[in-house]
Amino acid sequence: MRTYTVGETLLVTEFENLGALNAGMLRDYVRASLKPGHRCIEVDLSQATFVDSEGLGALISAHKAMAQCGGIVRIKGAVPMVRELFRLTRLDQLFEFSPD
């Protein structure tokens, strides 16, 4: 997992799954990397074939951090099975989605 900034966007990328094992890591990375100028966190899930409820919790945490400064969280490249998980938990209404 790594993070870097492009303009007003904090990119989070390079992980194969987002679950109980690394959800805490995502929270820490976002907390450490987020700067006042950021208006968007883009989480690249294109390589992730597995997301669980703990991973969703970490994404919600990122959403709450961005919502405080009027920003958003964008989910990039979610595979259909992962996209289905967002729909099932009705979190597809909380995040913005973009293709690869």
């Binding site: 409820s53 709450k64 099932l88 209404q93």
Partner: peptide, 19 residues
């Protein structure tokens, strides 16, 4: 059920198993 608070960071596991 899903948590009443849509911003809750926990509490979806049982719902997913049932679903």
């Amino acid at each position: 059920e899903l948590p009443d608070d849509p911003l809750a960071e926990h509490g979806r596991g049982l719902f997913l198993m049932h679903s």
